[in-house]
């Protein structure tokens, strides 16, 4: 009897374990926890707020195009082969479509056509180059968060700094006190606050020079980006950005994707100083670059 009872207990335990496993698998596959499930409670930093410190990375193909896109051979298959090919991917935009004003949609298409054209001049009043990324320019917000590079969050109670492997570019999120921008900039100005366990960042004071992707999606200097970073497991942040730019879009729109924690024990950002990589591209057409003998 005792033996039999033990068998039943083991069976019940096994069924329970399988159920837990199945639930866990379906949760991870279906992204959001089922309704009624306990929300994830993140470990705390010394100030009592969720601890977001770590190296994170998005695994989406949105840097090619934030909207749904097929794979294609990329711009230079004759020299790059598969190295330069574009993978397909789903849209990270809520509802799929970007609500462009009609004239802005035309500019997006023109952007795509000139995306690989570098036309830097010594006239500071001119800015008619293609995708800023191809020239190693600062990549702006939110694009920096879904480029194919990791980034690292450093958090204390007064500021949160985000350092991107791409270019070593940095954003400071002022938590306490909030500070004001002096001027517009590529990476904008960020003041943050906590909404429960979600870090909310209000980004303002952007210039009009960064793009959302290599497909030519763009914004104006009226851009405001509200980001939300929510821990959903020890290894994931749910990221959401609301884009408000009445000069370019008819209404605010939202993008979202998960950020994954890089858990390799030896992970660190490796310097990606791309300026020397683009000197031939940028200055060659001006006759200012001489090839070095190999």
């Amino acid at each position: 009897m005792r033996i039999r009872l033990r068998g039943v207990v083991i069976m019940v335990a096994a069924v329970a374990a399988v159920t837990v496993c199945v639930t866990a698998v379906s949760m991870s596959a279906g992204q959001a926890p089922a309704a009624g499930a306990q929300p994830y409670r993140a470990p705390r930093a010394t100030d009592g707020h969720p601890d977001l410190n770590g190296i994170w990375q998005a695994f989406v193909t949105a840097d090619w195009d934030v909207q749904a896109h097929p794979s294609n051979p990329g711009p230079h298959p004759e020299t790059m082969g598969v190295y330069g090919a574009q993978p397909g991917g789903m849209s990270i935009v809520e509802g799929g479509e970007l609500p462009y004003r009609p004239e802005a949609l035309a500019k997006k298409k023109a952007n795509f056509d000139k995306r690989m054209i570098s036309s830097v001049t010594n006239d500071p009043t001119r800015f008619d180059t293609g995708d800023p990324e191809i020239e190693c320019f600062r990549s702006g917000v939110p694009r920096s968060n879904y480029m194919p590079f990791p980034f690292q969050i450093f958090q204390n109670a007064s500021q949160i700094q985000i350092v991107y492997e791409y270019k070593g570019q940095i954003r400071t999120i002022y938590m306490n006190p909030h500070l004001e921008a002096a001027n517009e900039s590529w990476m904008g100005w960020a003041n943050g606050r906590w909404d429960g366990d979600t870090l909310v960042v209000e980004n303002t004071d952007f210039n009009d020079k960064t793009w959302f992707d290599r497909a030519g999606n763009y914004h104006s200097d009226a851009l405001k980006v509200t980001e939300r970073y929510t821990p959903i497991s020890p290894y994931h942040l749910q990221y959401e950005a609301t884009i408000d730019d009445p000069k370019v879009f008819t209404r605010p729109w939202k993008m979202s994707f998960p950020l994954y924690r890089r858990i390799e024990p030896n992970i660190q950002l490796i310097e990606f100083n791309c300026v020397p990589f683009v000197e031939e591209l940028v200055y060659g057409p001006l006759g200012l670059y001489k090839k070095q003998p190999k």
Binding site: N122, D123, P124, E135, F137, R138, N183, K209, Y283, L288
Partner: peptide, 24 residues
């Protein structure tokens, strides 16, 4: 006193263009 402000140096670095043209 804080803060630091962004110095986007490489973004449209016309200084290096003028430097190089002048040197040439």
């Amino acid at each position: 006193e804080p803060p630091l402000y962004e110095f986007a140096c490489h973004e449209m670095n016309y200084g290096v263009i003028n430097w190089t043209k002048g040197s040439q």
